[in-house]
Computed example of a mutant assay.
Amino acid sequence: MKKLGIYIHIPFCKQKCNYCDFYSIKWDSETENKYVEAILNEIKSYKEKLNGFIADTIFFGGGTPTIVKPYNLKRIIEEINDLIAIDKNAEITIEANPNTLSDEKLTAYKEIGVNRLSIGIQSLNDEILKKIGRIHNGDEALNSIDRAKKNGFENINADVMFNIPGQTVSDVEDTIEKIIEKGIKHISFYSLKLEKGTPLYIMEQNNKIVMPEEDYEREMYYAGRSVIENHDLIQYEISNFTIKGYECKHNLKYWNQEEYIGLGPSAHSFLKNIRFSNPSDLNLYCENLQSNKLEKIIHEELSEDDLMFEYIMLRLRLTEGINIDEFNNKFSTDFMKMFENQIDYLHKNNLIDVDNSNIKLTAKGMDISNYVITIFNNSY
Rank of each mutant, 00 (worst) to 15 (best):
T198P: 02
R275T: 05
K296C: 00
V227G: 01
K253R: 13
G224L: 08
M220T: 05
W255K: 04
E237F: 07
E258F: 10
H231A: 10
M211W: 00
G245Y: 01
N207K: 14
I274M: 11
C286V: 15
N292L: 08
Y216T: 07
N273R: 14
I238L: 14
T198I: 08
L252S: 11
N283T: 12
L252I: 10
K244C: 02
L263V: 08
N256H: 12
M211N: 10
G224K: 09
L294F: 06
P279G: 08
P212Q: 02
C248M: 01
E237Q: 11
G224S: 06
Q205I: 02
Q235L: 03
Y236M: 05
S266P: 06
Y254A: 06
I209G: 02
K272Y: 12
R225I: 05
C286M: 12
S226V: 00
A223C: 05
S226L: 07
T242P: 00
G262E: 08
I234L: 13
M211G: 01
L284E: 14
L271P: 10
I202G: 00
R225G: 00
N273F: 11
E204K: 14
P199N: 08
G245N: 04
N251C: 04
M220N: 07
I234V: 14
D215I: 12
S239R: 10
I261H: 06
H231I: 01
Y201C: 01
Y222N: 06
P279V: 14
L284G: 09
L282S: 12
H268T: 12
E229A: 01
T198Q: 03
E214K: 13
M211R: 08
S277A: 15
K249A: 12
H231N: 15
Q235E: 12
I234R: 10
E217G: 07
Q257Y: 01
D215M: 02
E219S: 13
D281R: 09
N288G: 00
N288H: 03
I234C: 02
R275Y: 02
H268G: 01
N206L: 11
H250R: 11
Y221E: 09
H231R: 14
I243Q: 03
E258Q: 15
C286R: 08
Q205P: 00
N278D: 08
E229T: 13
K253T: 11
I274V: 15
S277M: 13
S291K: 14
I228L: 09
N278H: 09
K272R: 13
M220A: 05
L289K: 06
Y222P: 00
C286A: 14
E219V: 00
E217H: 01
P212H: 04
Y236G: 06
W255E: 03
N292R: 10
Y201G: 01
T198C: 03
L252A: 04
E217W: 00
N273L: 02
Q235Y: 02
N230H: 02
M203R: 13
L263E: 04
N240W: 01
D281K: 12
A223I: 05
V210A: 07
S266I: 09
S239M: 06
N240S: 15
T198V: 09
E217P: 00
S266E: 04
L252Q: 10
Q257C: 13
G224M: 07
I297V: 14
N251E: 03
G245T: 04
E214I: 13
D281V: 03
N256C: 05
A223M: 04
I243M: 07
I274Q: 11
P199S: 07
R225S: 13
I238C: 03
